[in-house]
């Protein structure tokens, strides 16, 4: 099925987006979702050399927290397995934040500045050097680029007759985005997720639109959503190429 796809972006900002894709099969939609979560690599701190740690946390606890700090990852410049050295030196009383991490490469920086690593009291200090490694979410969850990736069927609403004057209308709760009578895609938060707010006093029929899926994609800040989606599609395509070459060789 190398059919026609139609993509419509409903909302997007730096780290999250919602879009409708038409012409997908469930297998393909799930393939893209899984690839976004597990197969697009990002940098994460993987090994730490402590020079001094007189904080209240063990080295291992700080190591775990450091691994979870998202680092910006320009994928054109690096390959899986590449490392970037980062370092931190903070003396108490102060809180060591992710923003205090100094990177040897200006392309690879903490994506958020304000993640607390550990609170240091008077006389405490923390100093280390660490290696951030580029790898996939399949290897370790800290290297997932997509942190909340999901899809659901696009649902369309058909407005019917008015309900009886004294009939009670049941709430009709929907999530994400829906397609209205006029074929327009609307976010459900615009009517507080209850369809009866948008169409009061009418009979409503809600059904799935075949082959249309609403994706909601959120990244950890390593890169933007478009990068994540395109890289995921590319990783599936790469594997297809590899299989094709292996079979025909």
């Amino acid at each position: 099925m190398s059919g026609e796809f139609d993509v419509q972006i409903i909302e997007r900002d730096d780290r999250q987006a919602r879009f409708v894709v038409r012409g997908l099969t469930p297998a393909l939609a799930n393939g893209f979702r899984r690839a976004m979560i597990a197969d697009v690599p990002t940098f994460a701190i993987d090994s730490v050399r402590f020079t001094e740690n007189s904080s209240v946390m063990f080295d291992e606890m700080i190591g775990l927290r450091l691994g979870l700090v998202p680092l910006t990852t320009p994928l054109d410049e690096f390959e899986i397995g590449d490392t970037v050295t980062v370092a931190l030196d903070v003396e108490g009383p102060a809180t060591a934040y992710s923003g205090d991490i100094e990177s040897s490469d200006e392309l690879v920086q903490p994506a958020d500045e304000n993640i607390p690593i550990v609170e240091l009291k008077e006389g405490h200090s923390l100093e280390f050097e660490a290696d951030a490694v580029l790898d996939t979410g399949k290897e370790h969850a800290k290297q997932q680029g997509g942190v909340a990736v999901g899809f659901r069927h696009l649902q369309s609403v058909t407005v019917g007759d008015d309900i009886g004057e004294f009939d009670e209308q049941e709430p009709e709760i929907l999530r994400g985005a829906i397609e209205t009578d006029e074929g327009e895609v609307v976010l459900t938060k615009e009517f507080d997720h209850d369809l009866t707010n948008k169409y009061p006093g009418t009979e409503l029929t809600v059904e799935d639109v075949p082959g249309a899926y609403v994706f909601h994609v959120e990244t950890d800040g390593s890169f933007d959503v478009a990068e994540l989606v395109l890289r995921a599609a590319e990783s599936l395509g790469d594997r297809a190429d590899e299989l094709h070459d292996a079979v025909t060789a």
């Binding site: 026609e4 796809f5 993509v7 972006i9 393909l28 599609a233």
Partner: peptide
């Protein structure tokens, strides 16, 4: 072999459609 190339065509078509919308 044809199935594998069909997957490649599909992912390329998806990428094009996404880039066109983005």
């Amino acid at each position: 072999a044809d199935g594998a190339s069909a997957v490649r065509e599909t992912t390329d078509a998806f990428k094009d459609a996404f880039e066109a919308a983005a």
